[in-house]
Amino acid sequence: MPEYPDELIRDLLRDGLSSEELEGLQRQDKDEDRFEQVLRLEQERLEWPERILLCLQAHLYVVEKDDGSKVVRCDCGQEFGDYQRNWKESALVFERAGADADAIYRGPRVADPDWSILREFYCPGCATQLDVEVVPRGYPFIFNVELDLGAVELRRQ
């Protein structure tokens, strides 16, 4: 039995926690079985049957397919390839600078593009904005999470 009821963790995942419940979660010792519980609740919500191995970030999961391959997949179903490779390599990219930056940052709040631009990554499937990198032009994509999935699975057993 998980330490917290499914309803509470479901609310955490789906933006329904009250601030009192949130504070309660933050103040308590971390629950040992959260990882499994979150995977189970996320699996329930998603419309595809393949097993989720890990929640990588907002909207993205590492999923095990029938052929045994482990890929990054968006909740819309769009795939981004092997989890050991940066998912950004399979995303849509938009460099936001100049007039495009003025469209959302006003006046002096726009950074000088000689120093800093925004690189937005969208899901090719659902066009969700998955990441916004703050980088100078010419900077390699940041590979944020490179998992030791073997070790994660080892701990699950």
Binding site: Q57, A58, H59, I104, Y105, P108, R109, V110, A111, D112, W115, S116, L118, T128, Q129, L130, D131, V132, E133, V134
Partner: peptide, 20 residues
């Protein structure tokens, strides 16, 4: 600082704007 975006966002969130 320099005229850079000052505090990066996370997982699709935008950074705070530049200081001035």
């Amino acid at each position: 600082a320099a005229p850079i975006y000052s505090a990066p966002g996370l997982m699709g969130g935008y950074p705070a704007g530049a200081l001035y």
